[in-house]
Nucleic acid binder design. Sequence first.
DNA 1: TCTGTTGGTTTGAACGTTCAAATCGAAGTA
DNA 2: TACTTCGATTTGAACGTTCAAACCAACAGA
Lengths: 340, 340
Amino acid sequence: MPEKVTIADVARQAGVSRQTVSNVLNAPELVREETRERVRQAVEQLGYRVNQAARRMRTGRSRLLAVRIERTQDGMNVFDRFLHGLTESAAKAGYRVILYSADDDRSEIATFDDLLGAYEPDAFVLTSTHYGDVRTSWLEERGLAFVTFGRPWGTPDGGGHPWVDVDGAAGTAAATRRLAGAGHRRIGYIGWQEGSGVGDDRRSGWARTMKDLSGTTTGDTDGDKSGDTGVLERRTDGSTAEGEAAARELIAAGATALVCVSDSVALGATQAGVPVVGFDDTPVAAAIGLTSLSQPLSEAAACCVEVLTGRLDAPDGGSPGDGPPDHVLLEPSLVIRRTA
Amino acid sequence: MPEKVTIADVARQAGVSRQTVSNVLNAPELVREETRERVRQAVEQLGYRVNQAARRMRTGRSRLLAVRIERTQDGMNVFDRFLHGLTESAAKAGYRVILYSADDDRSEIATFDDLLGAYEPDAFVLTSTHYGDVRTSWLEERGLAFVTFGRPWGTPDGGGHPWVDVDGAAGTAAATRRLAGAGHRRIGYIGWQEGSGVGDDRRSGWARTMKDLSGTTTGDTDGDKSGDTGVLERRTDGSTAEGEAAARELIAAGATALVCVSDSVALGATQAGVPVVGFDDTPVAAAIGLTSLSQPLSEAAACCVEVLTGRLDAPDGGSPGDGPPDHVLLEPSLVIRRTA
DNA sequence: TCTGTTGGTTTGAACGTTCAAATCGAAGTA
DNA sequence: TACTTCGATTTGAACGTTCAAACCAACAGA
């Protein structure tokens, strides 16, 4: 039976009071060097660990980060690698990750409520942000700490809350440039239906680069209005089957290479026999030799933790408004394989 | 700001004492019907949620299950689906999942210690059991609650602790029978190096079935000693490259179909052009049309939770020894696709 | 000498819950 | 009547921590 070692045991062992032990742990500068060392030894000797439940009762801080675990759709998701990174980074910062699941925004908000009542996580990490995301406003209204992995799509100025994201447009732009560098001029794009923040972002990198390549004018890299690119573009539901169909259509329309919004559609597209670049560098891409864009997920996770701990451990309690909101945009990298 | 509702607030609202509210929540049968209803309404009205930290202080129970998040090796792992199921099942039973990571058994045990001191999880769920697994004995010595997802390899009687696992031998046996049903007689097996519990188990299903098929004698289905099967078997490091090489060797040796220990090696084997069955039904299998054995992961996770909650919520505090240890062996199912 | 300041430490209380024991009214039994 | 028993409810204490305030010795300035 693992006997519990409390702060009182340590205090007795070191010949000081409870509070002094607490201070050594939480505010060492208040304690005289010599005493500090004595307490540290006692902690070591007894194998003392702070009881988070008791600490939390007093301070209201749980050192827990709550994250939703994503439903594995077609299995080509990327979330588990992010989660792994998050767990490791959190542990380094003295936090633990607690999981929950939810089917939609509404039930996720209900879960926020539940979790806050029961476990009081210090912060939430939201993934899969989308237009009209009600989760962020719910959290903001209550002054709760959170980061999103994903930009707040739909708020032009980048939103008031901290976020970390991967620059999809930069990724597809790099992919498009690579294909162009191999001599292709008619590079097609297979995307998702309009209205997905991530999808539109990824599309824009291709569109922008194509415009640049066509050399109509210099400057105005922001211009998204398709000139003749429209004919080289297909929107799909993201399935492999539609990816293949779209690829054949685009090739018929003259495309000689393809940039894809995901590995799923890219997998289909590879059947059509022209160079293809996918997105997300899923295991499937590695397995079939698909060139793909890899998101720096560990790094993204580390950023999320950094942003949160920065706010949580701030002296004033981490209320928003101090300093600029953290907005981190990371670059994906192109993993070259057989298909392009 | 979300004001905290405590049990005292509920008590006041319902015109009863704290303890009565507590009883309504934890032992409703002690409270008179009418009072119970009144308290329930107050709980509802105020949106009260029990504060787990405070509860834990008193009871020593945290309603947390700790699970290690696996390092995604080649991405063809299966763990994330298990984790998803675990989160959902745990939530239904009123538990949450807390994550940790560790590089080896030693550091995992250190993490047990850490977690127990800080968060006191009620139980651990261990994955990736293996021969000489020191984690289980560490936990057993301390009388801590845990289940393993994976049998305790190496203890012939099945071990004293509860476990949930998927019957790999039954899976490969089913795969072998299916290939035999399609007319194949020389069915090869591509496995891992000897000494892995999971690998040896999966191999045994193939070996047993091949022996049965050869019709030397009836009965003795347990017999594992390879007769002429040895020549139809290759052991690999699990990589796709070695899978392909092994497949070609086996075909040269006369094999007309192949059963594989994993989707990774199966992916390589498909290059050789004979029917192939993989194991784990990873996204990669779905993507390339590989017939594969699917583990019932949600079900396995649900079993883990059931086993644990059964023990934790037992009246005597869940000490081991009451009733038979729970050993659950689930059957994988063959997902038929193009390759077999 | 008195007063104030400072660094280091201790003491009492509180966080929200549940356990154990106490209380109370009603009903049953001798 | 007095004594038990029983069901329903309340009261006091405790879990382990940290906050806020108190304490104390040493020292500085008037």
